[in-house]
Simulated assay, not measured.
Amino acid sequence: MTERDAWSMNGYLGVLVIAVLIGVGIINIIHEHFFLGIFFFVIAIILATGLTLVQPNQSVVVLFFGKYVGSVRKEGLIITIPFSVRRKISLRVRNFHSRRLKVNDINGNPIEIAAVIVFRVVDSAKAVFDVDQYEEFVEIQSETALRAVATKYPYDSFDETELTLRGNAEEISDELKTEVHERLYVAGVDIMEARLTHLAYSTEIAQAMLQRQQASAIVAARKQIVEGAVGMVQDAIEQLEQTGVVKLNEEKRMIMINNLLVSIVADNGTQPIINTGSIQENG
């Protein structure tokens, strides 16, 4: 089912035509032309059944004896097919805010997630005839898409190459928008924006996951510190040997490397011990 234009004419002109027909009918009845007067009255009534008012950003779906004959988007007072059934569909931009859904991320951790979907109807025929209650269809399919996206990614990760729900909000929102659009295209609905509005671990594991996050953060920070320290020590040893400031044998090299690593990696500032030699007394 695809939207197409239904026959319509300017409603004000139609009202004028109806008034003229009624006037002609009255004149004929006054002149005792009863059948002709009734005929004009009937024509006026038939045209009046097609009068309808279309608001801005609104579409009127027209059915004639159960058959879809088209839609009218021209705002204002119009006359369309007489004796037709007309259903009004809003084309305005609307928001749908999902419930807080409890799902498992790709690692199996239970999380709470919610999103807001900004949408509008672009095909009134699809919205009316291809789905039943398109507003409810939008809600159910949006939450289904949100669940599907949430299960593809971890809540959080310290690996910068991996997409996460918390760390890659833009990418997740774009994928959610695509996912929802594919599901709602059949209903003639266009998705303008999709954004996460709530994201958190479920209450039953929130404290445990916070401790796990802290531990993972400490491990990641330590790893980065150690990698940086190794590079700094390597550069320092190479510069000392290249400039000829000191000549180190294998044992002295290992001692210097150990001392440098300890001083760089230690949490607290290290206190150096200065060796000034020994003093011997002659007695």
Rank of each mutant, 00 (worst) to 15 (best):
L16N: 12
E250Y: 01
H198P: 03
I111W: 00
Y155L: 01
L16C: 04
V128S: 08
T2K: 12
V93G: 02
I255K: 12
R100F: 05
L163E: 04
S59E: 15
F158E: 04
K223C: 07
I78Q: 07
G188V: 02
I237M: 04
L101I: 00
H33S: 03
V93E: 09
V93Q: 11
R92N: 13
N57G: 04
T203H: 15
T161K: 15
I273W: 01
E135V: 07
A217K: 10
G50K: 00
S142A: 10
R92T: 08
S202A: 11
R87M: 11
M232W: 14
Q141H: 12
A266R: 10
E162C: 02
V93M: 03
L248M: 14
I22V: 13
N10I: 04
V62A: 10
I273K: 12
V219R: 11
V149M: 01
I106V: 14
R183C: 03
L21H: 03
F137V: 05
R73Y: 11
S71T: 09
L260Y: 12
A48Q: 01
M9G: 05
Q133G: 08
S173E: 15
E250C: 02
E136L: 13
D190N: 11
I255E: 14
Q214G: 02
S124H: 06
D132F: 14
E136I: 06
E162G: 07
V24F: 08
V103T: 11
S84G: 07
I264S: 03
I279A: 07
L163N: 05
M254V: 07
Q211K: 13
A115R: 05
N104D: 11
I46T: 15
E204K: 01
V116S: 08
D190R: 13
S142P: 05
N249I: 04
L199W: 00
F96M: 04
D156V: 06
A187K: 04
R100L: 02
M232G: 14
A200D: 15
G76H: 02
N268R: 06
E179H: 00
A19T: 09
F119C: 09
A48G: 14
G50E: 03
E136C: 09
A266V: 01
L261W: 13
E162Y: 02
R4W: 12
L16W: 05
E179T: 03
A266M: 04
N259V: 04
R87A: 14
G269E: 15
R87K: 09
G188Y: 09
